[in-house]
Write a protein that binds this DNA or RNA. Structure first.
Length: 413
DNA sequence: TCTGGGGTCCTAGGACCC
DNA sequence: TCTGGGGTCCTAGGACCC
């Protein structure tokens, strides 16, 4: 088989770069990318973590996901700006739109990462990568790293080398020199837990892992051991696919602004999550066979409970009622800081085939769809349950990002 | 006012069936 | 009531990614 040429395009400090580009275009003098800065959640709502950091912020040891409190301890002069998800989706779409012109085989991996199969591209791959990078910089106002390799894994590893605004290759003959010296936690799929496990047995670099006996890793870490051994040796053969894989689950979760200590408030949060998650499952025309709820208490321990239902559901009420039952079984009375509802084992919502077309359900179904339509047309707050008034709890939680308009961000549109 | 939210996949134990 | 083992389903938890 001939060698594939796979690109991995990764927006540098995506949220922060996009925020900076937007602000510069709107006359702001300071470029967030050039000072210690982060995009962060709202601390008043207990969402105070770092979502993206500038390179100067990184030099203070600030990491994505850490609390703003700790980030400020590392850098007291840190600039913190709030997130604008609507803007980031537009920036992401603009990047994908530009890249689509280079290959029909393109896969969105996340909001800021794209795989592109350039095996049949009509230019020299280095020239093509350079053109993409420069066009994104000039036309969209932010920089990307591009990793080039014979498969998705190596392309992705390559894009993570020196940043920003760089192109790197990682072909098989380069693995030993470019990838094996890196610390083992730099390998895709080796996170904090696995790093500790591997380090405790003297495996410190990706090269150490690659040179382990495959059978030893398999018996120790099962399937996962085989996976990371393969990765350490550059073995991976998944295709770049532009059709996204079928959705397996839909969930919404929320950290409440205050600890919830009463059943009444807990039920309100569950109702709020039920509204959102059920709107989303109806939007994709699915029903769920399994409902899972989980709670995290004020000591940061999480517990979950799930139930498989005889009949797949998509109605707000059914999901809410199931969540309440699960919650009553799960909750021991301690203060709660986070709630989540997840729907899984999805199936088609073809109700005729599901043979559950009884009268009650039909009425409920009509009501749900009517409310969905109104909310889509007039906004999520156009229909709100009165029980949320003065509760301090949002009537709909998570999921739906309201389309904000950024009409003057000309170069993105 | 220290610690978000959205996903995927894997494992292990128990129930239940043959 | 001394004891098997394979297979599947369900559930809870944990790992990873962005």
């Amino acid at each position: 088989m001939e060698q594939r040429i796979i690109f991995h395009i990764d927006a540098n400090s995506a949220f922060l770069s996009w925020e900076a580009a937007y602000r510069i275009q709107h006359g702001e003098k300071i470029d967030l990318r050039e000072i210690p800065s982060v995009v962060g959640g709202d601390e008043k709502k207990r969402h105070g973590i770092v979502l993206a950091k500038s390179i100067p912020a990184k030099k203070y040891g600030i990491k994505t996901g850490e609390s703003l409190y700790s980030a400020r301890n590392k850098c007291p002069s840190l600039t913190v700006v709030p997130a604008r998800h609507g803007l980031y989706i537009k920036c992401s779409n603009a990047m994908v739109g530009l890249l689509k012109k280079y290959s029909p085989l393109i896969q969105r991996y996340s909001i800021d990462e794209v795989f592109l199969d350039y095996t049949y591209g009509n230019k020299n791959y280095m020239a093509a990568a350079n053109e993409m990078k420069e066009r994104i910089k000039k036309e969209l106002g932010f920089t990307v790293n591009i990793g080039i390799g014979p498969n998705k894994l190596l392309a992705k590893m390559a894009s993570d080398f020196k940043k920003p605004d760089m192109i790197h290759t990682l072909f098989y003959h380069e693995i030993e020199k470019k990838m094996w010296p890196l610390p083992v936690e730099d390998l895709f799929m080796v996170g904090y837990r696995t790093k500790s496990k591997l380090n405790s047995r003297g495996i410190l670099t990706i090269g150490d892992l690659a040179r382990q006996d495959k059978k030893y890793l398999c018996s120790w870490l099962k399937k996962y051991g085989l996976l990371i051994w393969n990765y350490a040796n550059g073995i991976e053969d998944s295709q770049v696919r532009n059709d996204s894989l079928p959705l397996k689950s839909i969930g919404n979760s929320t950290t409440t602004p205050f600890d919830v200590e009463t059943k009444k408030e807990a039920y309100l949060v569950l109702l709020s999550l039920s509204e959102t998650v059920s709107m989303r499952i109806r939007e994709v025309e699915k029903c769920a066979r399994v409902v899972t709820i989980s709670i995290r208490n004020n000591e940061f321990y999480s517990f979950s409970h799930q139930r498989k239902l005889n009949t797949p559901i998509d109605s707000t009420n059914c999901i809410y009622e199931t969540s309440k039952e699960l919650f009553d079984e799960l909750w021991k009375g301690e203060p709660i800081r986070r709630f989540s509802i997840e729907l899984s084992q999805l199936c088609s919502n073809d109700f005729c085939q599901l043979s559950i077309f009884d009268l009650v359900y039909e009425k409920e179904r009509k009501l749900d769809r009517t409310i969905d339509k109104i909310r889509n047309k007039y906004g999520c707050d156009s229909v709100v349950r009165s029980c949320f008034l003065y509760s301090g709890i949002k009537p709909l939680t998570g999921g739906v990002i309201m389309e904000e308009e950024y009409p003057t961000m000309s170069s993105l549109l």
